[in-house]
Design a protein around this nucleic acid. Structure first.
Length: 641
DNA sequence: ATTAGGG
DNA sequence: CCCTAAT
């Protein structure tokens, strides 16, 4: 941050009138939620419709080869289920085993193991539907972690039992993948009530057959992106469920981090070419649930139900259902030239787990849209592509395809891709915007800050912001570039001239690959989680104190504008909160204080200002032109008991 | 969009 | 810091 003001108000505290309301930014006209609703709805509906259509008409043949593409899986869950010994369950899930087996394990293996649970922790099936996959060939499973008889922890673990399945195997057995059971069925620890699943939606499930609906290829995409505003959460309130409603939950759970919503896929394509498009969503106010959502699901279910909630994990468990089908896209005329090339098409990407919750009074269309949102959010949250060969992850980006064993057509079957959260391998993701143009250690900035620090003028050495603290706000390395470049590299890997590396079939593969977003801004928004903690530096406190001394404690917006306008990561709420803690800190004994010690001088000023402004709250109106001598109130304010 | 408070 | 209610 930078001190915007270097005026020495001394001890005189002028009462500065509030900035005229007119000066406050007005949000531009926004499209009505209605529009958004309708549009998104239709789009998703049509998409889902196609899925259904395809799933019904397609055969149930499984794809063994595909399965072998991703041999590694999270089987602990399965095993767990079987340990449970529940025959019904077993029956229900056995087939799924193959599905799971086909899931490519990624970094979050640890996560999975964490999810392991003892038999008696088996998930309690309810009526919530859990969408295992939302690759649009996904399976729906009726599993609900909300056991009313279990405790919180149990709940957590239960949630982790959600199956990781792959659609193409699920459908192989004509399993009832989509389970929309009747409400109210709750099972105890020992009695996993699964039967309800049988009554559930029949095989007309979405997952009977891989639908191969390309995420980024919908004609409606354009509209979609425009209309999909994630504002539906408000809208959904219209679907407020009746008291006894049971909410359907569609979720996949692997980690505790959530991605943020993102624009349509097509944008990604564009972004690749343009070098980045403007993100549709900057604020975190979009539709996602934070960590607490899961933790509180027990207690706040009611709350959650009021809106559609979507949580996607970044577990890195994203797997792909890539289908190499060279024969399909071979360019006959150029077959010779492509003899050593690699052509393939990506049928679809499997999407990492999603957590979706909507009131069961919501419409199907709403559900579809929600799923769409989840997927979109996930994809836009910042992912990168992982390459799997025979189930093995290829991390060396410099290896040629031939060296990797995927240079010949025969091996294409073993080629797979995964979608992984970029930050899974990246350092703490930091938003570029969070940092001022000037580097923290930039002499210029440092000087300006020092000179602007009232403390200097007051001759209080302690208040001089130390370089260390100054660096605090900017010592984060923007990892975006790394990530992006890394990602790009993986796609545009340049192999030795003599060997033809991955040469995507223009129309097909390029597009398919484009499914992976590169947009930095999108990545930024990825942090739909709790903001990174950023302790106030002494200099910041300094600025805050000064601003409050001048403006009072009820004008945080002005404080922000005055002293922290350039500190994007400090919102007026942050400032208000900081002031709150400062007052508290100043009140308690020095021994009880934690963190970077704040100069007592500042704390004294905090108390003084706090005291003054709280005392004069009522009189503020009359003191328009008045001034105050801090010293006048300090004596009393400093008194600590 | 802000402010005020509780968590 | 987050979340909400109330402005």
């Amino acid at each position: 941050m930078v001190f915007k003001k270097d005026v020495d108000y001394g001890f005189n505290v002028p009462v500065i009138p509030r900035a005229p309301r007119s000066s406050r930014r007005r949000a531009p006209h926004k499209t009505t939620a209605e529009d958004t609703q309708v549009c998104a709805f239709e789009l998703l509906a049509s998409l889902a419709g196609k899925l259904l259509e395809e799933s019904e008409s397609s055969s149930a043949s499984s794809n063994a080869s595909e399965r072998s593409d991703c041999p590694r899986i999270a089987t602990d869950i399965i095993a767990q289920e079987q340990e449970d010994g529940d025959k019904r369950l077993e029956t229900e899930c056995v087939d799924r085993g193959s599905c799971e087996v086909s899931i490519a394990a990624s970094e979050s293996t640890a996560e999975n193991s964490d999810r392991k649970c003892s038999p008696n922790e088996f998930p309690h099936v309810e009526n919530d539907a859990i969408l295992e996959r939302t690759s649009f060939s996904g399976c729906l499973h009726n599993i609900d972690g909300n056991s009313k008889s279990n405790g919180y922890d149990q709940q957590q673990k239960t949630e982790g039992l959600e199956y990781l399945t792959e659609a193409n195997t699920c459908h192989a057995n004509d399993q009832t993948d989509l389970c929309m059971g009747s409400p109210g069925l709750i099972s105890s620890d020992k009695d996993v009530n699964i039967p309800s699943r049988k009554n559930l939606v029949s095989n007309v499930s979405l997952s009977r057959h891989r639908t191969d609906v390309s995420l980024g290829r919908r004609d409606d995409d354009e509209n979609f992106s425009r209309c999909y505003n994630y504002k539906f959460s408000n809208k959904v309130k219209a679907y407020r469920p009746p008291p006894r409603i049971v909410h359907r939950r569609i979720r996949k759970l692997l980690t505790s981090k959530y991605w943020k919503v993102a624009p349509k896929l097509k944008d990604y394509e564009l972004s690749r070419a343009d070098g980045g498009i403007k993100p549709l969503y900057h604020k975190r106010k979009t539709c996602y649930n934070r960590e607490s959502s899961q933790h509180d699901v027990f207690y706040k279910k009611r709350k959650l139900s009021d809106r559609n909630s979507v949580v996607t994990s970044d577990g890195g468990f994203s797997s792909e259902s890539v289908t190499n089908s060279p024969e399909k896209n071979v360019d006959k005329s150029g077959s010779d030239a492509m003899l050593h090339g690699v052509k393939f098409s990506i049928k679809s990407f499997r999407v990492p787990e999603l957590f979706i919750e909507v009131p069961d009074t919501a419409t199907v269309g709403s559900l579809k849209r929600t799923v769409m949102e989840a997927v979109t959010a996930l994809v836009g949250g910042g992912i990168r592509v992982g390459v799997l060969v025979k189930g093995k992850k290829i991390r060396d980006d410099d290896r040629t395809l031939s060296q990797t064993g995927i240079s010949c057509k025969d091996n294409l079957d073993a080629l797979g891709f995964t979608l992984e959260p970029t930050h899974a391998q990246a350092p703490p993701p930091i938003c570029p915007e969070d940092h001022p143009p000037l580097l923290p250690n930039d002499p210029t900035l440092l000087l300006s800050r020092l000179s602007a620090a009232p403390a200097l003028e007051l001759g209080i050495p302690n208040a001089i912001p130390d370089p260390t603290s100054l660096n605090d706000s900017g010592n984060h390395v923007d990892s975006n570039h790394e990530i992006v470049s890394s990602y790009v590299d993986s796609l545009t890997d340049k192999p030795p001239s003599d060997s033809r590396a991955l040469v995507p079939v223009p129309a097909m593969s390029v597009e398919a690959l484009a499914v992976v977003p590169v947009n930095q801004k999108i990545r930024k928004s990825e942090l739909a989680q709790r903001r990174t903690r950023r302790p106030f530096s002494v200099s910041e406190v300094e600025a805050l104190v000064q601003a409050v001394e001048e403006l009072g404690t009820g004008r945080w917006r002005d404080v922000k504008l005055r002293a922290f306008e350039d500190a994007d990561h400090r919102t007026y709420v942050d400032l208000k909160d900081k002031w709150k803690t400062l007052v508290h800190t100043a009140t308690i004994s020095p021994q009880q204080r934690r963190g970077e010690p704040v100069p007592q001088e500042l704390l004294d000023r905090v108390l003084a200002a706090h005291s003054y402004w709280s005392q004069n709250q009522a009189k503020q109106g009359k003191r328009q032109a008045g001034t105050l001598k801090i010293t006048d109130v300090q004596p009393g304010a400093i008194v600590m008991v």
